[in-house]
Structure formats: structure tokens, C-alpha cells
């Protein structure tokens, strides 16, 4: 039986409903996650359901005790989520755009990430920080970053990057159930994309990559929304007789090194497609991984397809230039395959 198809947005919402039903300790905190908090008019509650409507309807189902609208005080409410997690709750806290992490990074990386280690393993912090990433909406430099590499850098955090609706649901459930702090990166350009999603309980194991498309000539590791762009490139390349294998790590901390290395050992060529800033990034990290553990298999220098090392520009013309597209992936792949054609 074919699975029903829902959007990435609906998949996230469905995961929330199921996880909140499953565990009364799951609470949500964030700015405008319901909307109009404190208003007496019941029609006003759920005015937004989150800035992108991701949490729409939840306040009606679970009440405002479990859907806590916050003031614009990221340090206080993300820190409170960490404190509540250390005190036995299982909070999911929303950082509206990852670019806002600058105002509250300490609570994530110095508190959430480190409490367990600093306390000799005698505490656990089962908090999920949801945040949105990605360029493509004309949101300019402070609302379009990816920045997942920053969080991957910190021991103590887990980082997940769902690219499909099914993974959006399964990784959110996994993040909420996980006993460690997990940063869950939603690509806001994916919200309306549709795909098959299991209706009932669906949990995707953290730390397992997905081979999105089997191929023989080049391994293309693509992250988050870049998986879809790589699929476009795969169709173009297919017509040229070039078969790429697309690997979506899905979780970047922990990183499923084995799946990436196995693929490279098979294809002997590597292109990494990453929308994050290119320096000290997942792209450089994955290339370093292959260079140190599978160098002898490489038949060509690895390539990375990333934005330029600039902030994200506003003008649609500039933004289009900035974000990697299928043509750039095609070009990079062509550069690593033998010039026989």
C-alpha cells in the first residue's frame, strides 16, 4: 500500500502531537509558538502557531501549560529549557532562526552541552532545540544562515538535519526521546515539500545516514535541502551517462562515517554539497574524513560545492548566485569523473 504523502511542516507537527501524547514531560517553549498568550479571547490563542505555523493546533490539544509562549528572551528561555531538562522534563525549545544563536549561545554550548560532562556524568539534559536554517526566502544575512557546523563542533550536542518529510518526523521523535541535548535544524525552504511519511510511530535512529540514491561513479554527500538539489543534478547527470550516489548523513553529530567511507570506496570519487559557510564546515570535515581514512581510494581530488564565504545576500539575484544549485553540482561532478566523454 502506498504511504500517504504529507508536507515537511505537517510531518513535524504530527511528530509533536504523537510525542506530546506519549510523554507528559514533553513541553514546548518559544516565541509565538501558540500566539497571543495571556489573551482571554480563545479565538486569539493559536494566533500563529509558530512563526512558520509549525506548532499550529498544539495549544488546543495540549493547553498553554505545555505550550509556553515566551518573551523575546532567548537566553532566559533556552536556559530555562536546559534547567527544566536537567530537572526531569523533556523540553523542546524553539530558536526561531539559527542566526539568533548569538544572543543565547552560552545556554546551549556552555550549559546544555557541558553540564553532563562537567558533573562527571551525574546529570542528563534531554532538551531539543529546534531551529530554522537556510537561504532562499530573501530573508538576508541574519535570517538565512545554516550554522550547523558550529554546533557540531561542540562535544555534548547532537545535531540532526532532516531533508525529507519522513526524516523530519522520525528525527524529531528521536530527538525528543534522546537523553542528550539535540539541535534539530529545519530547513525553512523545505516546509512545503511533500513526501511519504508513516502515519503511526516513526523514529529515525540518530547517527544513521541514508543512501538517497544508489550510484556507481561519484559519491555526492549532500546535507539538508541540498539533498533535493543533488537529486536534480543526478537526473541531469544521468542523461550524460554519469551515475551519482547521493548520501544524506541526516545526522552530523554523530556522523555515520562508515556509510560515507563505504560509498567512497565504491565510487572512488567524492563531492560534498553543503549550504553552510564553507570554512571549518561539514564540507571540510567530510573531506578531511575521507582524506584521512580512504585517501587511497580516491581517483580524483574531492570537491566541495558550497556558497561563497560571504554572509547571505538579500537581492533575489544575489541570493540565487549564493545558494548552490544543480548546475554547480553537475559541474563539480564532471570535474571529478574521467574526461572520456
Amino acid at each position: 500500500m502506498p504511504e500517504r504523502e504529507i508536507t515537511y511542516r505537517e510531518a513535524i507537527n504530527e511528530a509533536f502531537v504523537q510525542e506530546m501524547q506519549r510523554d507528559p514531560n514533553v513541553i514546548l517553549l518559544g516565541e509565538d509558538i501558540a500566539g497571543a498568550p495571556g489573551r482571554d479571547d480563545p479565538d486569539m490563542l493559536d494566533a500563529w502557531g509558530g512563526v512558520f505555523g509549525m506548532t499550529k493546533g498544539l495549544v488546543g490539544k495540549f493547553g498553554s501549560q505545555r505550550m509556553l509562549d515566551t518573551p523575546i528572551s532567548e537566553s532566559a528561555f533556552i536556559g530555562a529549557a536546559v534547567g527544566a531538562a536537567a530537572s526531569g522534563m523533556r523540553p523542546v525549545v524553539e530558536l526561531m532562526f539559527v542566526g539568533f544563536c548569538g544572543v543565547c549561545l552560552d545556554q546551549i554550548v556552555n550549559q546544555g552541552a557541558k553540564l553532563r560532562y562537567m558533573f562527571g556524568g551525574r546529570a542528563k539534559v534531554p532538551v531539543t532545540v529546534r531551529t530554522t536554517i537556510g537561504a532562499g526566502l530573501g530573508a538576508a544575512a541574519q535570517h538565512s544562515d545554516c550554522l550547523y557546523s558550529i554546533f557540531t563542533h561542540y562535544p555534548g550536542l547532537k545535531c540532526v538535519l532532516p531533508a525529507t518529510p519522513a526524516d523530519a518526523k522520525g528525527l524529531l521523535a528521536a530527538a525528543i526521546r534522546d537523553d542528550d541535548p539535540v539541535i534539530y535544524f529545519e530547513n525553512k525552504v523545505l516546509y512545503e515539500t511533500k513526501g511519504p511519511v508513516p502515519e503511526g510511530e516513526h523514529v529515525v535512529e540518530i547517527g544513521k545516514a541514508n543512501i538517497v540514491r544508489q550510484g556507481t561513479d561519484v559519491t555526492v554527500v549532500a546535507l539538508s535541502r541540498m539533498v533535493n538539489v543533488a537529486l536534480e543534478a543526478a537526473d541531469i547527470l544521468n542523461k550524460e551517462g554519469i551515475s551519482i550516489e547521493i548520501v544524506d548523513p541526516r545526522t552530523i553529530s554523530p556522523l555515520d562515517e562508515q556509510t560515507i567511507l563505504d560509498s567512497v570506496r565504491k565510487t572512488e570519487r567524492l563531492v560534498v554539497v553543503d549550504e553552510d559557510h564553507p570554512r571549518c564546515s561539514m564540507a571540510t570535515d567530510i573531506i578531511a574524513l575521507v582524506a584521512t581514512k580512504a585517501f587511497e581510494y580516491l581517483d580524483a581530488p574531492a570537491r566541495m560545492v558550497t556558497p561563497p564565504h560571504t554572509p547571505v545576500p538579500f537581492s533575489p539575484v544575489l541570493e540565487k548566485f549564493y545558494v548552490p544549485d544543480a548546475q554547480r553540482i553537475v559541474k563539480a561532478v564532471m570535474a571529478v569523473v574521467p574526461q572520456k566523454r
Binding site: L68, G79, N110, Q111
Partner: peptide, 25 residues
């Protein structure tokens, strides 16, 4: 005892969380 803390001013948000957990329970 939710920890001594090396970051000046890091405690108040954590305290809000501990208090929130108590209140919600």
C-alpha cells in the same frame, strides 16, 4: 545542587527551568 558555574550570569536561566519543572509538576 544544579552546579557551580564558570559563566557569570548563567545560573538565573537554569533556575527558571528548575522552578518551571516544579511548577508544571
Amino acid at each position: 545542587m544544579l552546579g557551580a558555574n564558570g559563566i557569570v550570569g548563567a545560573g538565573p536561566p537554569l533556575a527558571c527551568g528548575a522552578a518551571l519543572a516544579a511548577k508544571l509538576r
